[in-house]
Amino acid sequence: MNIFRLTGDLSHLAAIIILLLKIWKSRSCAGISGKSQVLFALVFTTRYLDLLTSFISLYNTTMKVIYIGCSYATVYLIYMKLKATYDGNHDTFRVEFLIVPVGGLAFLVNHDFSPLEILWTFSIYLESVAILPQLFMISKTGEAETITTHYLFFLGLYRALYLINWIWRFYFEGFFDMIAIVAGVVQTILYCDFFYLYVTKVLKGKKLSLPA
């Protein structure tokens, strides 16, 4: 465990909690892509099946349980409890265009052709693109609430910190996981355009809105 990985994990946790609290406190999930949240719930479910097979540390287990729990709570709020506020008309990204190629790739490029390992690989690939429905929704409506942009910022920050973590681990532990690294780079790149808008607009106190 190094400082980049820890802050990366905490940043990820912050993103998840910010989103959940925003929805809970405002009793509204307007502007949030339910599809992205379902994809994230699927990501955590398929990745953390090793909760049942191997114990790594109390920290590891606790964080996994919190991530899974929060992601399902978010999906529950969006599709059940606060369904009336869900902006489904603008959440029109076709997720099968992500799931099918990602599933195929997980079968073709993995560390080991076993069920758990393929599901883990699937979750890594899926996570790298799971935010696309949310970004698509923002590009469609042309704006995002400031709190939503904070959520996206912490989610992107988590990824950027993990990249530094992998450089660290390569130098000091000789560890590298090519699948995680390539997917992580792709994921971070997807956030770059958003980061630019966040720094130039949101941090200067303006609302994030895109030119028509």
Binding site: S54, Y67, D112, L116, N165
Partner: peptide
């Protein structure tokens, strides 16, 4: 071959 990959990252 029985080998389980340990993925220690989140």
């Amino acid at each position: 071959r029985e080998f389980t990959y340990i993925h220690d990252e989140l």
